[in-house]
Design a protein around this nucleic acid. Sequence first.
DNA 1: CCGGTTTTGGTATTGAACATAGCAATTCCC
DNA 2: GGGAATTGCTATGTTCAATACCAAAACCGG
Lengths: 136, 136
Amino acid sequence: MTDPLARQPGYALRRAANAMMGELAARLSPLDLRISDASVLMLIARRKDASSSEIGRILDIKRANMAPLLARLEAAGLIRREPIDRKSMAILLTAAGESRLAETDRIIEQFERDLLARIPEEHRDHLLPALNALWR
Amino acid sequence: MTDPLARQPGYALRRAANAMMGELAARLSPLDLRISDASVLMLIARRKDASSSEIGRILDIKRANMAPLLARLEAAGLIRREPIDRKSMAILLTAAGESRLAETDRIIEQFERDLLARIPEEHRDHLLPALNALWR
DNA sequence: CCGGTTTTGGTATTGAACATAGCAATTCCC
DNA sequence: GGGAATTGCTATGTTCAATACCAAAACCGG
């Protein structure tokens, strides 16, 4: 039952990302947040007054996909929009958004710790720089 | 424009896998193969006479998703099915499947080489074991 | 300060990968 | 022999991401 494709970094990357996303989605679901919701919330907090297109540019989420995502977060009362000019809108966390974000941060931190713990320590510190070399 | 989330291994894993899949899909599209098509072809060649449920078990593709995938490969003339008993079917490569697989192998090999080349060499050899620790 | 270009926010739609629920037939195994 | 598990499959839903297109506002060179 051993998988002969597991020697290929590309395949391993796909499988690892998949397993990771599945587990993270499960841990976030009690908060009623999808993975991309959580990443947007975290970014908003670190980049106050960013417009939706700015957020999309940083996280690589297309405008078309950002619109329904933000609509969902707004409907959930986690963010509000404030006009910057007659075209752009600043995305801000509401009080509810702040507290949801705090829960999110706790979950994510624990998750990242658990993730790293699974990696043999001689490889551990190499993962982040290796991954970042693949997309940044 | 720097992305503050890039310090998190989970986020970096998602972004790296995403970038990788996008590029691989582009390289495979001249062959009219999706990524999962290619992985199934490669597995069939290494595990002759495997049934569809066996392949699914190894690659972690659910029965429900394997059915249309194999139907596509069969319609493209790349595989054929041969009864093992009155319930199970062996999945075999046709001649066209063999030659398509050869092209696939060339593309994948080059792709994996390019992937690794992007990683600073001091991290390179750690990627595969680190990733495999996350799902195997 | 005018007018073409770019940016912004949005809708509608599509594709790929993956998941669950259910079904009929066959095989497994006590 | 018969209940339990396995196999192949349909139908359907979810999540993420992409394309095409739109109107309005902002930007910027002449």
